[in-house]
Design a protein around this nucleic acid. Structure first.
Length: 611
RNA sequence: GCUCCCGUAGCUCAGUAGGAUAGAGCGACCGCCUCCUAAGCGGUAGGCCACAGGUUCGACUCCUGUCGGGAGCACCA
């Protein structure tokens, strides 16, 4: 891997060593457009104080002692800054020819996302979860990790019970006229209104269903919802490795084991009196100071476990503390990859798979769950059986909610938009634009899907997770500006040039890198930043960094493509370039295209060759 | 009340572990296709980076406080 910044860092280190200085953190940054040079460093500032010397002078001394650096043509000081001038021919060639191989990382990553309550259809808020989770899993894979994607099925919850009960209560039967999750969701909403008139019957009925669910008796009914929900994920191009059922977590004894482990801690006890008398509580004050309520109820005084307790059991299992859950095949996903599930009647081990036992655990859940998620991590911290790394490597990727035209999503108030609905609309809009701009395009349907769905997912990923997204149709489905189609278009444009080049007889050995200049250098510099963008995205659990990178790369390329000289004449016509320059430019475009495609791929977005 | 998050152009957002003149998109206005896809490109207008202090050679970035906005804090999930 060609890493110029790293080379610059090392060179400065050598220079500093010869001056008898040890500075651990050497900043390297890109030079602003209006300043001389390509990369710069401000190390001298940091040394000014300890050396009691003018930073500009220090910079000069460092430059004087610099060794030769490959790919650097010139070094200059600009005041206290040390600026490097890249040898553009060498640099661009290096960027084009760098191999994209990644070092294996032996830390296994478990990413849980989607985890939609199996009682009604998914809405745009879930779309954010799915898009972020899927992007994260792709990014970690790109960083060399083994990644296991889990989708948690809360099959013992009240909401699932209410939906199932509603079927009996209204005496309805599924006739296949709409998607099952939508059909069930309507019954669920109907039941909420019916509760006002007939609370006793409904309460009693729901309790009965809940009891059955807890004992895993209505598995087939829940599976039907889960399968319908998975269809939405599949149409977004998202797949999973394992479904984890809450009822299996409980029946495998993980809840019980978790409580036993926790009881060994002084912070977990059963008060004899007070408001939590006879309940099992966990005092988190030692670990989370400053809270008003220090005690968290794990098991109610009636003996029923709270949701957090199950969640703790789940987390303990993920990090590898518990064993004994069983697995079976669930279904074959569109890519032909098998989706597995936990199942009480399954096998202890699936050949070729070692589920759970993660080194890094990432839970993609909305930010309203921050408190319970903190409790779960705290439980790991206070448990002797857990390693310190289990706590440190447990992360909550908290994302803010999605609102609709400024209003909170609420199924009951009818303020909601389902994922299936937005997908259909997005694809339809994309189809219209294609029909208008490029009517002769073959496979319009396929490309409309790629573009429409790409736009949707990108709109969920491009902003920071901690910011609220207000979903607006025109904005989310926009095909121009800061959008996936903008990047896809840049990609298709590059593809088009390469297609045309294929018809000619081109000898790429004739590429003359010295015939490339400032414009190509600019493009190459951005291409070279991809590995850094991937690393940062993973480090900060922030796919938006990669999304922003994709935009920057597409912008740079579009700008290059449309560039004109002082006379207003295009000066970057690749196919009309002179011999030597043409071949080098084509190779650069090829690299650009694959880099765009990779950025999109890591966000779970397709890169059409034409659009 | 306590805890956490947010506040950058009219609107929606970037700003890469403090660094050089704060950047995009949408909207407005002016330009660019006899030339590899105009879903594109160039330009103009638009900023006390909420406010006040502090740390620093240097703060949109770190700390404290204030003001706005959101969320969380139950023997619910």
């Amino acid at each position: 891997m060609y890493d110029l910044k790293d080379n610059l860092k090392k060179a400065i280190e050598i220079s500093l060593a010869s001056l008898d200085i040890k500075e651990l953190d050497i900043p390297i940054q890109e030079v602003p457009d209006n300043k001389p040079g390509d990369y710069g460093s401000a190390v001298a500032f940091g040394l000014a104080k300890t050396l009691r010397k003018n930073p500009a002078l220090i910079a000069k001394e460092i430059v004087a002692n610099l060794p030769k650096i490959a790919g650097i043509a010139k070094v200059e000081t600009v005041g206290p800054y040390i600026n490097f001038f890249v040898d553009s021919a060498e640099f661009i060639q290096n960027v084009v020819e760098q191999d994209a191989s990644i070092a294996k990382n032996d830390k296994k990553v478990i990413i849980e996302h989607t985890s939609i309550n199996p009682n009604k259809e998914a809405h745009v808020g879930h779309l954010r979860n799915i898009s972020l989770g899927d992007a994260m899993s792709r990014i970690f894979r790109a960083n060399g990790h083994e990644v296991e994607v889990q989708n948690y099925i809360d099959d013992t919850g009240r909401q699932a019970a209410e939906s199932l009960f509603a079927i009996d209560y209204f005496n309805e039967e599924y006739d296949g006229s709409k998607k099952y999750d939508h059909w069930l969701g309507e019954l669920y909403v109907r039941l909420q209104t019916a509760k006002e008139k007939d609370p006793e019957t409904i309460e009693a009925g729901v309790s009965k269903i809940m009891f059955k669910l807890e004992h895993g008796q209505l598995r087939a009914e829940i599976e039907q919802v889960v399968k319908a929900l998975l269809q939405s994920s599949y149409s977004l191009g998202v797949e999973y490795d394992l479904l984890v059922w809450e009822s299996d977590i409980v029946s495998s004894g993980f809840l019980k084991q978790a409580l036993e482990v926790l009881k060994k801690s002084d912070s977990v006890y059963t008060p004899k009196e007070g408001k939590y008398a006879n309940a099992l509580v966990m005092d988190v004050s030692k670990f989370l100071p400053g809270l008003e309520e220090n005690e968290v109820v794990l098991v109610r005084s009636d003996g029923n476990a709270m949701y957090v307790a199950k969640d703790i059991g789940n987390q303990f299992w993920k990090v590898g503390l518990f064993k004994g859950i069983k697995y079976s095949e669930f279904e074959t996903q569109p890519s032909q990859k098998t989706l597995y599930t936990t199942h009480s009647k399954g096998k202890d081990k699936i050949t070729g798979h070692n589920f759970a036992n993660g080194d890094i655990i990432i839970n993609v859940i909305d930010t309203r769950q921050s408190h319970p998620q903190t409790i779960v991590r705290t439980a790991l911290k206070m448990t002797e059986a857990a390693k310190a790394s289990d706590f440190e490597q447990s992360h909550h990727l908290a994302y803010e909610v999605v609102t609709l035209e400024g209003q909170a999503i609420s199924g009951r108030k009818g303020i909601t938009v389902s994922i299936d609905e937005v997908i259909a609309e997005a694809v339809e809009r994309a189809r219209k634009v294609i029909a208008e701009k490029n009517p002769d395009l073959p496979a319009i349907d396929e490309i409309a899907k790629q573009v429409g769905i790409g736009a949707l997912k990108f709109s969920m990923i491009k902003t920071e997770a901690k910011k609220i997204i207000d979903f607006r149709w025109e904005q989310a489905l926009s095909l121009q500006g800061d959008s996936a189609p903008y990047i896809q278009y840049a990609h298709a444009r590059a593809a088009s040039i390469l297609r045309a080049a294929k018809k000619e007889d081109i000898d790429y050995n004739k590429a003359d890198w010295s015939k490339l200049g400032e414009l190509e250098l600019k493009l190459a510099r951005v291409i070279a930043k991809l590995p850094e963008a991937i690393k940062m995205s993973a480090r900060d659990l922030s796919p938006h960094i990669l999304a922003q990178y994709g935009l920057e790369l597409a912008t740079t390329w579009n700008s290059y493509y449309n560039h004109k000289d002082e006379n207003g004449k295009p000066d970057t016509r690749i196919l009309l370039s002179e011999a030597g320059q043409k071949e080098a430019r084509l190779l650069l475009v090829e690299k650009l295209k694959s880099t765009l495609a990779k950025s999109l791929y890591l966000l779970g977005i397709e890169s059409p060759e034409q659009m």
